[in-house]
């Protein structure tokens, strides 16, 4: 799975499930800037788990991370699970 695809999937989740405006999202924008605090991030990780089948621990992501970093984290977790 390429980073672009994962990133696009993540953007779709943010837009459809977290009511974030698509135009506000870019790879460099942080979750904080999208008004997503730690509780929302936990919720996002749960949605990623149920919709993308990827488990990411709460400790490895923070609201100061960017959307691009989160996409890379998902890719890394996917690769680790597949190896």
């Amino acid at each position: 799975m390429s980073t672009t695809t994962t990133y696009d999937q993540l953007v779709d989740i943010l837009v459809t499930r977290f009511e974030v405006s698509r135009e506000d999202i870019s790879p460099d924008v942080t979750f904080e800037a999208l008004e997503m605090d730690s509780l929302f991030l936990v919720e996002l990780l749960l949605v990623i788990q149920s919709e993308m089948g990827v488990t990411i621990s709460e400790d490895s992501a923070s609201p100061s991370d960017t959307v691009g970093q989160a996409a890379k984290l998902i890719d890394a977790a996917t690769a680790a699970a597949g190896s």
Binding site: F40, V42, E43, L46, S50
Partner: peptide, 13 residues
Amino acid sequence: EVGPQAVSALLIP
């Protein structure tokens, strides 16, 4: 219907 992993982290508040 889905399982415990589907329970929202926002449920309690």
